[in-house]
């Protein structure tokens, strides 16, 4: 059910490539170089804050474009410009399991969002949209600074159990079980509509990630993340992996919040990161000293692989 690869297996197994000098990542000295290196981080923060700001402005100040509310609602369900409905497909799935008939707006909205992530986004909700990512990234950053040791080990499959449980409990209790207590929903709702005690749940997540388990919430517990792992596993946008230039310096594995997705053997085989657990955060791309990683579309990667293999077969 779940990839259990240990991140450092690659090096421990003596998987370094012979005959190439292993260079480690050196941060650029210039400001422009730094900004370029942080490009995905900056873009991710812009989308995360931008989406929250649009929700907030529409709710609080009644932002309108051409007389239509800009983005009304929150991440659970919303409407863009009074036309395009959007909805959290996981919340809708839970609601459907309570055996209630929902109006078509929310079903269309959920289909739009699910379609987007299934075709293009993959699990990028977690890295690019979810506001909890801001909290957990801050915790992970501070954790690295303080060199906090692991308090205990937690299997990444716990989130799959949480996913199953939220669906089963929805059917049993007659309400969307995760949506009712989701700290993610609490956070964006209380940012958009006014703060309350939900922010203490967020503080709890921050402390858990900081002091208890590394990447504890997003990487181990969150059933919504698990849902997008499954929903986005056939996405067309992937991190391309160029095996010919890779020196196995494992800098990418070190910064990846889901390090098991960087399985070099598999990645070399397919020419890309294939696991649905990848959040498309782009950390690995910007840190790679050899530029072996980049965002690309699956058909293009396959074409590239085909060309490469044909070239390899041709006698020199």
């Amino acid at each position: 059910m779940h990839a259990q690869a240990q991140p450092l297996d690659n090096t421990q197994a003596g998987d370094t490539k012979p005959g190439r000098v292993v260079r480690l990542y050196t941060p650029p000295a210039t400001i422009t170089g730094k900004l370029w290196n942080w490009r995905y981080l900056i873009l991710r923060r812009l989308t995360q804050f931008g989406i929250l700001a649009m929700f907030f402005g529409t709710a609080r100040y009644g932002w309108e474009v051409a007389g239509r509310p800009l983005l009304s609602g929150n991440l659970s369900a919303s409407e863009f410009m009074g036309v395009i409905p959007m909805a959290d497909p996981f919340a809708v799935l839970q609601q459907l399991l309570t055996l209630h008939v929902l109006d078509k707006e929310v079903l269309i909205g959920a289909a739009i969002i699910l379609g987007f992530y299934a075709l293009i986004g993959g699990r990028s909700f977690c890295g690019w949209v979810c506001p909890v990512n801001l909290i957990t990234d801050a915790a992970a950053w501070l954790r690295a600074k303080l060199r906090v040791p692991d308090f205990c080990n937690l299997s990444r499959s716990v989130r799959m159990w949480a996913l199953i449980l939220s669906l089963a409990l929805s059917a049993l209790l007659g309400v969307a079980a995760f949506e009712w207590v989701s700290p993610i929903s609490m956070l964006h709702r209380e940012v958009v509509f006014g703060a309350g005690l939900g922010l203490t749940a967020i503080l709890g997540i921050f402390l858990f990630d900081l002091l208890v388990v590394k990447h504890g919430w997003c990487g181990h517990l969150c059933p919504l993340g698990a849902f997008y792992c499954l929903a986005g596993c056939a996405t067309q946008l992937r991190v391309r992996f160029d095996d010919s230039t890779c020196t196995r310096c494992v800098e990418c594995v070190r910064v990846c919040p889901e390090p098991h997705v960087l399985n070099f053997k598999q990645a070399a085989d397919k020419g890309m990161v294939t696991s649905g657990d990848c959040t498309n955060c782009g950390r690995c791309i910007t840190i790679c000293p050899e530029d072996s990683l980049s965002f690309d579309l699956k058909p293009l990667i396959k074409q590239h692989n085909l060309n490469a293999s044909q070239q390899a077969r041709r006698p020199a």
Binding site: A59, G62, S72, S76, H100, A176, V192, G194, L197, G198
Partner: peptide, 28 residues
């Protein structure tokens, strides 16, 4: 039925011209 179907998006509260409708925060 309301508890099962409300997705807690707050679009009703946004539409209310008098700010009558509030979204319950945790602990309220």
């Amino acid at each position: 039925d309301f508890a099962a179907q409300c997705i807690k998006c707050g679009q009703c509260a946004n539409a209310c011209p008098y700010d009558t409708l509030k979204m319950a925060t945790a602990g309220s």
